[in-house]
């Protein structure tokens, strides 16, 4: 993969510290596969949406999870937030055991945890209650967490709006009166209302016009700088990933297949799937067209996962061992880790 073949991007962002904020270990989310009999359901198998993934995220860092639709990146993100309870694995946020806290279900503990991590949704049209004004949307988290006395809600709402670049006078408008980019700003403001440390952004720009994407990405970068936020950024758009992240985690069919520093991965992808993803990034210059490492075939069904390496059915460099043995996630040169028997 030639470096010159990729659109120019800004200098890589420096990580501010090395203290892990979020650590995920062996996260699994599976759904039972039922066959309905005449009188009762029979569990005939399971769908592993997320299959044993582990990673950590440092304070002030951005880790991106990339992969095709259906690879489990959104499910992984929602499991971390317990919007869908994970099937197994441990998640730690700072010193808190996330799963244990949610299963104990003690209100102050849950609230304290919810306060630290917030979610930015993919579709700003669906994630804002259409019957609430922006003021109501932004003051609800303030009310729930009791961070600000009610008399100061209006001031807090206006400050939040200004922080995300919206005029404070728009507080009494309804979501349908805003454009897509503006709505996403409201979604970000809602997440910021409780002053979180970690923001999980689930494809926050993929439903927006290309012209608006850069604005939202810049806003996210500014906010990270100002508020010392950590981002778990989920996307299938590798150009935005490269702009925003320090590290990348690549997922395929629920598995984590490669993880490492962003420049390292773009320069020397270890896994053939990562290489194919990178080569599929469009180049905005027709004179510099590049050959694509196209991968053939369709994504296998999650119901019938391939044996061995999940990618072997589509891999251009598959060996006989690939269909028999699961390759471990390892870092041969210490720089970044990938799971492949026959690396590039």
């Amino acid at each position: 993969m030639a470096e010159t073949a990729i659109a120019p991007v800004p200098e890589p962002r420096q990580r501010t510290s090395r203290k892990p904020l979020l650590s995920v270990d062996g996260l699994v989310k599976s759904y039972p596969l039922n066959r309905r009999g005449l009188f009762r359901q029979k569990v005939t198998g399971e769908i592993r949406a997320v299959n044993d993934i582990s990673f950590s995220l440092d304070e002030g860092e951005t880790l991106s999870i990339v992969g095709e639709s259906g690879c489990g990146k959104t499910t992984a993100a929602r499991s971390i937030l317990h919007l869908v309870p994970p099937s197994s694995g441990t998640i730690r946020l700072g010193d808190t055991d996330v799963c244990a806290t949610f299963s104990r279900d003690r209100r102050p503990e849950v609230l304290a945890l919810r306060r630290q991590m917030q979610y930015v949704f993919q579709d700003p049209y669906l994630s804002l209650n259409p019957r609430w004004s922006v003021r109501q949307i932004l003051s609800e988290p303030l009310r729930v967490h009791g961070l600000v006395p009610p008399a100061q809600w209006d001031g807090a709402v206006e400050a939040l709006l200004e922080r995300v670049g919206l005029p404070a006078e728009h507080a009494d408008r309804y979501p349908h009166e805003f454009s897509g980019g503006q709505r996403q700003r409201i979604g970000i403001a809602r997440a910021l209302a409780v002053e979180p440390r970690l923001l999980i952004c689930d494809e926050p720009v993929s439903s927006l016009d290309v012209s608006v994407r850069a604005q939202i990405l810049n806003l996210l970068a500014e906010l990270q700088e100002e508020l010392k936020l950590s981002y778990l950024y989920i996307s299938h758009d590798l150009s935005s990933v490269r702009f925003l992240s320090n590290r990348i985690a690549v997922m395929y069919l629920g598995n984590l297949v490669e993880i490492g520093e962003v420049d390292e991965i773009f320069a020397r992808p270890g896994h053939h799937y990562t290489a194919a993803l990178i080569s599929a990034i469009p180049v905005p210059d027709p004179a510099r067209q590049k050959p694509r490492d196209a991968i053939s075939g369709e994504i296998p069904s999650v119901v019938k996962r391939p044996s061995g390496c999940v990618f072997h059915t589509r891999c251009p460099a598959a060996l006989p061992i690939c269909s028999r043995q699961v390759p471990p996630l390892a870092a041969p040169d210490g720089a970044h880790a990938f799971a492949c028997h026959n690396p590039r």
């Binding site: 919810r114 579709d123 669906l126 804002l128 209302a193």
Partner: peptide
């Protein structure tokens, strides 16, 4: 099923 309900859950509303 809608996202704004997920958003409410994520923000800690009981």
């Amino acid at each position: 099923k809608s996202d704004f309900i997920a958003a409410m859950r994520a923000s800690g509303i009981p």
